[in-house]
Nucleic acid binder design. Structure first.
Lengths: 109, 109
DNA sequence: TTAGTATATGTCGATATTGACATATACACA
DNA sequence: TGTGTATATGTCAATATCGACATATACTAA
């Protein structure tokens, strides 16, 4: 279980270092990472739903296609601010954002 | 109404410039600002509820008392990441965070 | 094949955000 | 009065994150 989660995070590009380092990740940090990953996939879902390309979304929020790709890939260099800005710009409702938090709760363990 | 909101934001330290600038704030940016303010007050509420001082919370999340004060004051220099980290460290549940989003929806207009 | 479109990945100089620190303010209590 | 505790505010060097750009990959269609 822990191992699965580690692999998922590494696959998403998170530098978690050794398994020991990961297991020492505080509960709080793990929750934040899970939250960001959940919101990241919500961005992709919302963008696709509105039939927007990454370039379309980038223009809407005055960012760049490569940034949108990094947001959706769960790149660790992306801030929560940018993720939420993308969610909003993609047309997600407050309810959509709340739903992403709920997914996070399920994924938290 | 718009004027009231402008005053609230300015009181919280947001550099919104002239009233015209504020009125040109895109709907998206306004939503993000309102969201951050809502989460900021949720931090204070959660911290008080657990009877933590700002110093206590700062130690829990390896930040500083002055940063906590700025979070709670809605200082524009504070990132969404830091606000959510504070919320989590203060003991807020996922449900608490969702509730803050709901408040945001009401405040959005 | 070639061309067009969408997405992914790596880099970098510019900008935003950080913790730490000093210091001010406010309030309670002796 | 002074002393202690909690919070607010301003600054700054270090670090994190940004948009932009180049380029790679993948898939369609001519």
């Amino acid at each position: 279980m822990k191992t699965d989660k580690l692999e998922r995070l590494q696959a998403a590009g998170w530098k978690v270092g050794s398994a020991e380092d990961f297991l020492q990740l505080s509960e709080e940090e793990a929750r934040l990472v899970a939250l960001k990953l959940s919101l990241s996939s919500a961005v992709k879902k919302s963008r696709i739903k509105r039939k927007l390309s990454q370039i379309d979304l980038a223009q809407r929020m005055k960012s760049s296609q490569s940034r949108i790709a990094k947001i959706e890939a769960g790149d660790p260099s992306v801030s929560l601010d940018l993720i939420v800005r993308a969610l909003i710009a993609s047309g997600a409702t407050t309810r959509d954002i709340q739903a992403a938090f709920t997914v996070n709760e399920r994924m938290a363990d």
